[in-house]
Simulated assay, not measured.
Amino acid sequence: MKPRVIAFVGLIGLLSLPVAAQAQGFVGGAEEGAHRGNQAAGPVGAVVGGAVGAGVGTVNGALGLGYHHHRCYWRHGYRHCRY
């Protein structure tokens, strides 16, 4: 009986790994969505943008997307970055 319980707990642990990845994208997506929604449509846009951003951030976190590498260079004494 104990090996079956250990196998079951291990399976549940493996299945919970994507949830941990989704949680990382949830907060960042909600913040970014609320910020952009607020700029576009005020307080109502912030609420809608936060909800949509949380959903998109969750999916991107599960898929491993959303980690952008910034390309920066120096020109004429100023730092320029492309996102």
Rank of each mutant, 00 (worst) to 15 (best):
G25C: 03
I6R: 13
I12Q: 10
A54Q: 03
V9G: 09
G29W: 00
S16P: 03
P3N: 13
C72A: 06
Q24N: 07
A51T: 15
H69N: 08
C81M: 06
G28H: 04
R82M: 15
R75M: 10
R36P: 14
H35A: 08
A46H: 01
S16Y: 11
G45K: 01
G28L: 13
V59T: 15
A41G: 07
G13R: 11
N38Y: 06
V44L: 10
F26L: 15
R4L: 11
A20G: 08
V44A: 07
E32I: 14
M1I: 14
V5L: 12
R4C: 15
G64C: 05
G64Q: 04
A7M: 10
R75F: 01
L65Y: 07
A46L: 04
V48P: 00
Y67V: 12
C72R: 09
C81G: 02
R82F: 15
S16M: 15
P3Q: 11
V5R: 15
G45I: 04
R82S: 07
N60M: 06
G64R: 04
A20E: 15
G42C: 02
F26P: 03
Y73K: 07
Y78P: 01
M1V: 06
R82T: 05
L63C: 05
V52D: 03
S16R: 05
G28W: 07
P3V: 05
L15G: 04
P3D: 04
L63Y: 11
G57I: 02
G10H: 06
N38I: 13
